[in-house]
């Protein structure tokens, strides 16, 4: 039986879709079978971030309306074995789906795959209820700023009420430089406020933009800091114990050392 994990955040634009795409791909690269499910009905984006937008024929709506079999609606990612996408309908809206219908889809997918990752829409309304209905676990993505953290706290409360656990935190767009000069909260600050387990920190990485432009998730080329961070999180999801590296850089010496590391 596979695990169903909802990737959520409350606030939009913090990197839910990017995280879902990269973690799904990373898990497949680690030889797991994975389905990534876009639960953002009406505002789908997981397909374009993963570069699969031209191959969508059926969506979860078609499965619910019994227009096609679930297995037929899954789009195979040809770049890696064991990775599938279930797209959301773009012409419907979130109220056209019931939480039980999403749960039924997740329950079916978990019998044939190791991981089902659900990309939740922003917000705390119906879209979120649908996305989390079939989930056992949650990954909450936040950035280290006040609005994202406040919204993450709201979502964590709702997930706890729904008895979804564990709830793991990903701190995205972390800037060691800003933390170093006191302009950004560090992981200890964020964890002190949110009080859940940290599963990874993804440093701010301009490669995210270029990889999204191309439709090639970062983790396919594992050189960048962001790709390595996502690979580590994926390994942790499979149960491996990998320490979270200290990203904080203090002072000039570290900057010079990092520059040399990059050169290598």
């Amino acid at each position: 039986m596979g695990k169903v994990i909802v990737v959520t955040s409350g606030k939009g634009g913090v990197g839910k879709t990017t995280s879902t795409a990269n973690l799904g791909t990373a898990l497949a690269l680690l030889d797991k079978t994975v389905v990534v499910v876009d639960a953002d009905v009406g505002l789908r984006n997981l397909d374009i971030v993963m570069g699969l937008e031209s191959r969508i024929v059926y969506t979860s709506m078609d499965v619910i309306e019994k227009q096609c079999e679930l297995s037929k609606a899954l789009v195979r990612d040809r770049r890696v074995d064991g990775l599938m996408l279930l797209a959301a309908s773009q012409k419907n809206n979130k109220d056209d789906i019931q939480p039980e219908q999403m749960k039924a889809i997740c329950d079916k997918l978990r019998t044939t795959h190791d991981f089902v990752l659900i990309d939740s829409p922003a917000g705390i309304e119906r879209g979120f209820s649908n996305a989390s209905a079939g989930a056992d676990e949650a990954i909450v993505v936040t950035t280290p700023d006040v609005s994202a953290i406040r919204d993450a706290d709201r979502i964590i409360g709702l997930l706890q009420n729904a008895r979804i656990e564990p709830i793991n935190l990903v701190i995205n767009r972390f800037s060691p430089q800003l933390v170093g000069n006191g302009s950004m909260m560090d992981q200890a600050d964020v964890l002190d406020i949110l009080n859940i387990d940290l599963i990874g920190i993804v440093p701010e990485d301009s490669e995210v933009i270029t990889s999204t432009n191309r439709g090639i998730p970062l983790v396919y080329e594992d050189a960048s800091a962001g790709a390595q961070a996502y690979m580590r999180i994926a390994r942790r999801l499979t149960g491996q114990r990998i320490p979270i590296p200290d990203f904080e850089q203090k002072g000039l010496l570290n900057n010079i050392m990092n520059w040399f590391k990059k050169k290598k």
Binding site: I149, G157, D186
Partner: peptide, 19 residues
């Protein structure tokens, strides 16, 4: 004061109220 500690302080207060 560092803006990060101001952020943390303000957040703690508002989240306590939210909760």
């Amino acid at each position: 004061p560092k803006s990060s500690s101001i952020a943390k302080q303000r957040l703690k207060l508002v989240i306590t109220q939210d909760r």
